[in-house]
């Protein structure tokens, strides 16, 4: 799973997809995950990082993470394959 390389999150949580012209906003956790994905981190690493920092159960985060990835895919922000 890899973020498209030309996707960047601004400090204010703004994302522009130059391929499609669409813009998005993310909350801080969403931004953090995108940046981690961009750096090539694996799912487990990201999960551990979030659970170290935030008060959340493994199961809850895993479900939210999958949902979030689904949206990124849906918005064509993740490389196919």
């Amino acid at each position: 799973m890899k973020m498209k390389s030309n996707i960047a999150v601004s400090d204010s949580g703004f994302i522009f997809n130059p391929d499609t012209g669409e813009s998005f906003t993310v909350n801080p956790i969403g931004g953090l995950i995108i940046n981690q994905l961009k750096e090539g981190r694996e799912t487990q690493e990201i999960s551990r990082l979030i659970r170290d920092k935030y008060n959340v159960q493994f199961a809850t985060f895993e479900k939210d993470f999958d949902d979030f990835i689904g949206l990124l895919r849906n918005y064509s922000l993740i490389e196919n394959g």
Partner: peptide, 11 residues
């Protein structure tokens, strides 16, 4: 400029 749109959208 997109920066302007970004600023009004997020701030």
């Amino acid at each position: 400029d997109m920066e302007e749109f970004q600023t009004i959208s997020t701030m």
